Computed example of a mutant assay.
Amino acid sequence: MSVTGSTPMLNLSPVSGSFPFVSKYIPMSRDVPVTLGAQVDAESGQSRAATETNGWFAPQRASRSNGGSAVSPLPLSSKHSEVWWDGIQIYIRDLDSPFGTYLNELRINGTKVLKTGDIVSLGTQIARNSKTPSYITDDHLKPIIAKVTLVGVVAYP
């Protein structure tokens, strides 16, 4: 995807250990937050369309033993975190998600600036135990882990 005009773009690409997802190319509008979270809203049960240009992450098919229904990554909340551009930098903050938001392996509290090369993790790995349903795959226990690339944003030290 290319950037038109001066619209910055947040690119999130999956890295090793992540729940599988299609790379995101999210156009940022000044002072308009973009929510990062699960495609299916756990509170309402409604599904939102996950695309490569928004912050929703699509579920994956689980095993056939549950009818092959789609399951979102378990560490990912419906409204996990949000990113926004203030006209200069792109920021991220956690939205009180139970499994947290991490920037370069450190759990964030408050607002943090994103830079190209950063690694963002939406949640943490969940350990399989005797109560984990058999239809849940190992991928469903993984967080979303993404490498950040910023396009059209001036880098500040």
Rank of each mutant, 00 (worst) to 15 (best):
I26P: 02
H80K: 12
S130Q: 15
D31G: 05
I145P: 01
K131V: 12
D86G: 11
V83I: 15
L12Y: 07
S130P: 05
D86H: 10
P59R: 05
G17L: 07
G152W: 09
Q89G: 01
T4S: 10
T137N: 08
V71N: 03
W84A: 09
S134W: 03
L36S: 06
P20G: 13
L12C: 10
G37P: 07
S23V: 08
V153Q: 08
T124M: 01
R107N: 00
S44G: 15
W84S: 10
N66W: 05
V154K: 15
L141A: 06
K131L: 14
S47D: 01
N109C: 01
S77H: 09
S63M: 13
S78E: 14
F19E: 05
G45Y: 08
S23W: 00
T111K: 09
E82A: 02
G152V: 11
Q39H: 07
S69Q: 14
H80Y: 11
G45C: 06
L76Q: 01
S6A: 13
E43D: 13
P133L: 09
G68H: 12
D96R: 11
I136N: 04
S134K: 12
I136L: 15
V113C: 04
S63D: 15
D96P: 00
Q39R: 09
H80D: 12
D31E: 14
L95N: 14
A127S: 14
F99L: 03
I90F: 06
W56N: 02
G45D: 12
A70C: 01
V113K: 11
V15G: 08
L36H: 02
V153P: 07
P73N: 07
E82F: 01
S18W: 11
I144M: 04
M9G: 00
A146G: 15
S47L: 01
V113S: 04
P59T: 07
V15N: 08
L10G: 02
R107E: 03
M28F: 05
S97E: 10
G5W: 06
D96S: 12
D94V: 02
N129Y: 04
T124P: 00
T7A: 09
P20M: 13
S78A: 15
D41R: 10
R128G: 03
V15D: 11
P133N: 12
T51I: 01
V3S: 14
P33W: 02
S81Q: 03
N54R: 04
M28S: 08
I144P: 00
L12R: 07
A146L: 08
T137L: 14
I90N: 06
S77A: 15
G5S: 09
R48P: 01
G100M: 04
A62K: 10
A50V: 11
N129A: 04
K115W: 00
L74E: 13
V15T: 14
V120L: 14
S2C: 05
M9F: 06
R107T: 02
S81C: 14
P133S: 10
P133A: 12
V34E: 09
K112M: 03
K24C: 10
L106D: 11
S47W: 00
Q60R: 15
T51P: 00
S78V: 13
W84D: 05
P143H: 03
D118I: 08
D96H: 09
L141M: 12
A155C: 06
P75S: 04
Y102R: 08
V71E: 07
Q125T: 06
L10R: 01
Q46M: 14
V3R: 13
N109K: 08
P14F: 11
K147D: 04
